[in-house]
């Protein structure tokens, strides 16, 4: 159950396995500056401060340069966390624009955490949770 922590406010958002950072944040009721949502316009870049992610599609080198591939730049509409990651936005804060979606995401995260704790107590390996609506 990958989570995205937003520095410096410390918000924690639960993502479905395979979900992009952008998709996860919007689904959890947050908004920030985004554009094409398809990796082309470079507007949705943030800094990744901890954790790893991969890009789910090829990304144009005019969008993410070689240097940016290595300096923690994270193109959020294409970045899929490999585990828990921490990000920091550039020049703006995420805005909570939908409390209802945020509550749903919080519940999903708490349920997934409880499942993981119960499974590890029982000695069974953590299995991937699927999103339940």
């Amino acid at each position: 159950m990958p989570t995205v922590t937003i520095h410096p406010t410390g918000e924690v958002i639960y993502l479905q396995p395979g979900q992009t950072v952008l998709s996860g944040l919007y689904q959890a009721g947050f908004a920030y500056t985004v554009g094409c949502r398809r990796g082309g316009c470079a507007i949705c870049k943030v800094d990744c401060r901890a954790g790893d992610f991969t890009y789910c599609r090829p990304v144009a080198d005019t969008v993410i340069s070689d240097a940016e591939q290595a300096d923690g730049t994270c193109l959020t509409c294409r970045a899929v966390p490999e585990g828990d990651i921490t990000i920091e936005l550039r020049g703006e804060d995420v805005r909570l624009v939908n409390r209802f979606l945020h509550q749903i995401n919080d519940k999903a995260r708490q349920r997934a955490e409880a499942h993981a704790a119960a499974n590890s107590a029982a000695g069974t390996p953590e299995k991937e949770q699927s999103w339940e609506s």
Binding site: G35, C36, R37, R38, G40, A60, V63
Partner: peptide, 8 residues
């Protein structure tokens, strides 16, 4: 709208 590469 955007194509799958982000071209509008």
């Amino acid at each position: 709208f955007f194509d799958p590469s982000g071209n509008r």
